[in-house]
Computed example of a mutant assay.
Amino acid sequence: MAGQTRRKVTIGEIADEAGVSNATVSKVLNGRSDVSAATRARVQEIMDRHHYQRRRPRRRGGLVDLVMNELDSLWSIEIIRGAQETLAEAGIGMVLSAVHGTSSGTGEWLEQIATRRSDGAILVVSDLTPRQRARLAAVKVPFVLVDPIGTVEAGVPTIGATNWAGAVSAVEHLIGLGHRRIAHLAGPRQLLCSRARADGYRAAMERAELTVPEGWLRFGEFNDRSGHGELSRLLDETAAAGQPLPTAVFAASDLQAFGAYTALRERGLRIPEDISVVGFDDLPVTRWSHPTLTTVRQPLHDMAAMAARTLVRLIDGEEVDLPRVELSTRLVERESTAPPGPAG
């Protein structure tokens, strides 16, 4: 860096000269305590010698875009609440955009972000293409992904949940109650979270040396209509083949679980006396259903809040230490699960 003191140096150049990471330099700039005194002194000396001046944070009072596939589901409401509350505390407004589908489509939302010069964007279940990422970089809009559809490039800030572990806990709960015939209503096949939950289901079944009959793992959509339709077909096909029905169903979302409730009641089957049901998400309505739903709590509000906090840090020019964060899921036991009945 000799001879470069007349121009503005970057955090990366300071990190290279000090022999530390960019994140460590950022910690020194932000007064974090988890840096040794010797490292702090070395980094500070280099910054002083090169007259480094931290980029001033953007003025509060700006706007952040929250881009989602849909805005009318209970799942979406929890995400919206978490993001809005956190951004409001930071003095930042929020604009909602819906892309209506599993793909970000034509990218109209992207041009709207560029037009209104948003300070940043939270992208929820959006399939971000290289072209769209390049466009965000060109207009200098930092972004954070929440629960993305596909594989994410290294270094892109991403907030998710422990989907695989959550699914394992759900199935192991049922196995612990004595269930051996367990079906799974999965979400959309193309979503990473759906595949992770399906893989967790398979892993728990294999660990218990239980087989999954043909057609008992069914990919669908995260809604009650899909849960109702897929379970109805599963039950009809199993009965037509003269095979025993499942004694338990693990649904990849609470809404699918409620669709399963309807399918079971239409056939005169009781929950949990005849068939136990487990969901995934722990939406507020699960505590009001009859019976109340055993489910895996996915911290949707917390995921959105962390995404918002991460975005605020990016807007303020800070480095993000952990680009990929997965928040813990946990099983919440309620009334919809019980040991299998005499016929089980």
Rank of each mutant, 00 (worst) to 15 (best):
T24K: 05
Q298Y: 02
Q44W: 09
D281H: 11
E78I: 03
Q243G: 04
T158M: 11
S253W: 03
R135G: 08
I159D: 00
V124L: 14
R324Y: 12
P157D: 05
P342V: 12
F258S: 03
L264P: 04
T115H: 04
T158E: 11
S276W: 00
V320T: 07
R265N: 05
L235M: 08
P142G: 08
I11R: 15
G344Y: 11
A257M: 04
A98R: 14
R7A: 12
P57Y: 10
F258A: 02
H228F: 14
V320K: 04
R32S: 15
I14M: 01
P323G: 08
V320H: 07
V296L: 02
P244M: 10
V35E: 06
S36W: 06
M1W: 10
V212A: 07
V168E: 02
V9E: 00
M68R: 06
R189L: 08
Q243I: 01
H184Y: 03
L128A: 08
R60N: 13
E318H: 12
L87F: 13
V249D: 09
T39G: 01
E266V: 01
G344F: 09
D119I: 02
G61P: 00
K27N: 15
V141R: 10
R233F: 05
K8F: 09
E214N: 06
A23G: 10
E111A: 07
D127Q: 13
A170H: 00
G62C: 02
L255V: 02
F219S: 02
P213R: 11
A251P: 06
A257D: 00
I275Q: 02
W216L: 05
R81A: 13
R334W: 13
G3Y: 01
D147K: 05
V64G: 07
A307V: 06
A240Q: 11
L269W: 07
R330T: 15
R49T: 05
K8Q: 13
A98C: 11
M306T: 11
N22Q: 13
V285K: 09
T151M: 08
S73G: 00
A165P: 02
L217C: 08
V95K: 10
I14Q: 01
L322S: 10
D119F: 08
V67P: 06
R197Q: 06
E13A: 15
L300A: 08
H184S: 05
D16M: 11
S118T: 11
L245V: 07
V212E: 09
L264Q: 05
V67A: 07
S26N: 14
P130K: 06
H228D: 06
P157I: 04
Q243K: 10
M306N: 12
E214G: 07
A307T: 03
A183L: 04
L293C: 05
D199N: 12
L145W: 01
V9C: 05
G101S: 05
R54A: 15
P284Y: 04
R180V: 09
D147A: 09
I11M: 15
G344L: 09
W288H: 15
S126Y: 10
G3F: 00
I92S: 03
S33W: 09
H228N: 12
R32G: 07
A241V: 08
D48W: 07
A83R: 06
A304H: 00
L192K: 11
R233G: 13
P148V: 03
L327V: 07
D274I: 04
M68Y: 06
